[in-house]
């Protein structure tokens, strides 16, 4: 047997042995940690309850509300037209179908913003874009939209305007809704465009 075969075997073995020690990156698409931290520190992902309420009233078809609380809490109460994706199903394919659709803005919410924010971090790690977090969560929703506080006399004009909006919104979400139920107008139909698949090679033989 030629001596070179021993060298060949040795080189190939060492190369393969090396693969055991290198940090493997064969995982689903994720953004790099430094990118993640940079995005985490941006406050642009937060939206207010007022903004969400406005969009809901306008029946904005691009808005998709995602409730990240456990299913039991979702069953008790959730925001109108919200879809329940508990935080552990975010990493399953079924849960991910709601995210990353072009033309939709996903707003995550939980009781407070914390859980929704954590869900956002997970989604961002998985490279999903166009996701938002509702500041204050449902607690904030209750405090601002359902039971708005009247501003003090000395408050600026804008505070009163906001109060007026919130009162009307409250009417819409609590009272006005009932009048409309016959027409089932609360059903928002969202037509998602398919996510582009350019990211992965098509192939096969």
């Amino acid at each position: 047997m030629n001596r070179n075969y021993y060298f060949l075997t040795a080189i190939m073995f060492v190369l393969a042995l090396g693969t055991l020690f290198i940090h493997e990156r064969v995982v689903s698409p994720q953004i790099s940690p430094s990118e993640l931290l940079w995005d985490v520190l941006q406050p642009t992902r937060f939206v207010t309850t007022d903004q969400v309420a406005k969009r809901l009233i306008e029946k904005d078809p691009s808005l998709l509300l995602i409730d990240v609380r456990p299913a039991a809490e979702y069953d008790k109460y959730s925001l109108p037209n919200a879809v329940n994706v508990p935080i552990d199903s975010l990493i399953t394919p079924a849960g991910q179908e709601y995210f990353g659709n072009p033309g939709t803005k996903v707003v995550l919410f939980s009781n407070d913003a914390i859980l929704a924010n954590q869900a956002w971090v997970l989604l961002r790690r998985m490279a999903f874009k166009n996701d938002y977090v509702m500041k204050g969560g449902i607690n904030g929703w209750m405090e601002t939209i359902i039971q708005p506080k009247e501003p003090a006399e000395t408050a600026p004009e804008s505070a009163f305007e906001r109060y007026e909006f919130r009162k009307a919104a409250c009417q819409y979400f609590t009272g006005a809704n009932v009048a409309n139920t016959g027409k089932s107008s609360s059903k928002v139909k969202v037509v998602f465009k398919r996510r582009k698949k350019t990211a992965v090679a098509a192939g096969g033989c």
Binding site: N81, P93, Y98, R194, K197
Partner: peptide, 20 residues
């Protein structure tokens, strides 16, 4: 508003659409 909402889920795009 406890009605089931009909959302069109994003269909899983088969990567090998034109494959074997």
């Amino acid at each position: 508003q406890k009605k089931p909402v009909v959302f069109h889920r994003r269909k899983k795009v088969a990567v090998a659409a034109g494959g074997c």
